[in-house]
Design a protein around this nucleic acid. Sequence first.
DNA 1: CATGAATGAGTTTTCATTCAT
DNA 2: CATGAATGAAAACTCATTCAT
Lengths: 213, 213, 213, 213
Amino acid sequence: MKNYSWLKNIFENDAESMTDKQKAVIKAAVELFSKKGYAATSTKEIAMRAGVAEGTIFKQYPTKKDMMLWITERIIQKALFPLISSGLSELLAKNYNNREEFLSDFFQNRLALIQDGVPLFRIIIQEIPFQPDIRRMLVEQFKKLPLLAVAKKLSHGKSSKKISETEILNILLSCIAGFFVLRFMIMPELFPKKRLQKDAETFLKFLNHGLNI
Amino acid sequence: MKNYSWLKNIFENDAESMTDKQKAVIKAAVELFSKKGYAATSTKEIAMRAGVAEGTIFKQYPTKKDMMLWITERIIQKALFPLISSGLSELLAKNYNNREEFLSDFFQNRLALIQDGVPLFRIIIQEIPFQPDIRRMLVEQFKKLPLLAVAKKLSHGKSSKKISETEILNILLSCIAGFFVLRFMIMPELFPKKRLQKDAETFLKFLNHGLNI
Amino acid sequence: MKNYSWLKNIFENDAESMTDKQKAVIKAAVELFSKKGYAATSTKEIAMRAGVAEGTIFKQYPTKKDMMLWITERIIQKALFPLISSGLSELLAKNYNNREEFLSDFFQNRLALIQDGVPLFRIIIQEIPFQPDIRRMLVEQFKKLPLLAVAKKLSHGKSSKKISETEILNILLSCIAGFFVLRFMIMPELFPKKRLQKDAETFLKFLNHGLNI
Amino acid sequence: MKNYSWLKNIFENDAESMTDKQKAVIKAAVELFSKKGYAATSTKEIAMRAGVAEGTIFKQYPTKKDMMLWITERIIQKALFPLISSGLSELLAKNYNNREEFLSDFFQNRLALIQDGVPLFRIIIQEIPFQPDIRRMLVEQFKKLPLLAVAKKLSHGKSSKKISETEILNILLSCIAGFFVLRFMIMPELFPKKRLQKDAETFLKFLNHGLNI
DNA sequence: CATGAATGAGTTTTCATTCAT
DNA sequence: CATGAATGAAAACTCATTCAT
């Protein structure tokens, strides 16, 4: 986990305003929150892992919770949101012969990035049920995405159109969320990473067929 | 949440060996673990909500963690496992005209029960990433189920059979997990309960079509 | 200071509901607050002096401030207020030949009690400027006293009556407060306790003459 | 409190050796010590209010306590002592017809100055019980004053001379201390500032009569 | 002279757990 | 079986102070 690439994005805007120690604190916190959960991680542990004094943490964030909210906000804005939205407009503009090709483009490009971001997304998923703030932030960010346009594009398959775009979206989100949550959070032991690529392909075909309701 | 029906199942085997106070402790713990998470719930809170003295908790379980493991074990054995397995053999024995009917029978019958058990299942989902014990228990229980038989039955549709039964199972579990996790844990605000029944029907149709890979 | 008699009054209503350890906490806190001030006293110090664990303190009072307010409230209600009011109605009912006799009765009887209560009153005086709660409590208690009646009695001397009863009261309170604050809080070194009795007598004569405005 | 005039006196000797920032630190410290007390004021707060970095404070004074002692020393030497002594020799030299005139001159001239200095004197009064250094300093300064001469002058009224000059002094100090401490520290709410002038006049008359023991 | 990041000892407070009653 | 006072270790957080820049 030492060098997962999303981390640098987290500091994007603040790269210069933050010292190395401050970044080390965030890195340590992300790693520990991801591994043990927010509530089960002590500030002392974070400080030790970051190689700083405990007081240093509280210079940056008034409370432990503030730190967690800063982190989750950045994860959503700098890792999760870009992951979903990057190239979405190009994707939508492009003229696809069929839906499977579209889905494939959308999905496959993101697979490696998603895997890389798993430690970050675990934090979001873990804290979402307890932090309305995070839920609000997520909804806000999602509203900015042209998700209905995507759904519209997807409904232009052989579908008999009895199903609304919102419904398509819900189904898609449910399935994709399930695909990753099950594999990376709930039952990682049951899903070897080697098979991920192949599983994803099958899953895509399934999705494509499914949308022919 | 006052009287969700699964709770009585939890005490099934121990109904007589447990006093009312002991049951109250478990009930309070379940409610609080579900609402705030295990690590963020204090034994003092549990005692207060249960209306017992702090010491009473430790008469039944030597540690807080023991209590949690007892609870999660019971949830898996008395609520989650029965939920999935009940009537499964009858279902398998029955001769279905088509797959959709089978799926519908399987799914619809369980919808109300699932909703009822949400507070219990939340605890499992929340603690799974941090407790290998729970993961192990889950895998063990699942092995007892004729899931592959179900998958086999499902593959006898119009499917072109290019897809293995294990793959069908994985897809099904992913989608169903996603359907409920998204709705009951991650983004409850976005999915009004009134629409649950209708959403489930659409989702079923989608699953059925999807399996025609 | 080991056994100043006011302390038992502090526990009056709660004597049975409080354990020995709880009382020891209060005693230690009173002594330390009086000696070092509230803000400069740590809960660890209090616990050590009381011979209890630090956690014990917080079983009784949610915060250190709560403990201080409980203490100050009791001091006002069980030590300061009774000190002033005790026997006041009898004093007022009695027929005095002259004012000096009245003042003398009022003052002299209280001298020993005041001295005894100094450690308690120091806490009040020290915290009053920073705690509006205490000021409010004090005003409330003082309103219950027949102070204007006392002032009236005092104005029935040879006074030419150009001065209102409220003014008499203010003067009296100012002087008496000054007498004790200077001696017991500001400059104890300058006022040997041996001379207190004699000083008080002179002071009384001065007051008596002064009221002949 | 923004511009109370005594403050400039505090810097008198050091006006040139101190930078604006250093003066701002002292001003902020005085205001905060006066409002919240020394022990309850953090150096961070002082730095923020002064608009300087935290480190700046420790360039001038090695420790927080040193700063407080510097401040209290200056208050005593540059505000409290001059307040009492200014014009005292002239006052003593002057030939007064009666004592009331003398008292009035002494008292009235100082009323505005005292009011102005209240925030400064509060610090002294608050810290006196806990800082023997301050008590020593105060006694030292007071010894320089011709207070006994004042007392002698005051005893040359209609007094029957049964009372010593020291006793007169003690009485006077007690009463004056009480007058101000009650009004400006203990119970400011009960004494509207509008009435201060009139109250002082009555109080003076009372003092004058009182000294006719 | 001034800064502010960093420190680490100390403070208040929480918490799971024990045990005498 | 149940209580709740008591514990002490650990948690979150504060603070005066240092030091490299």
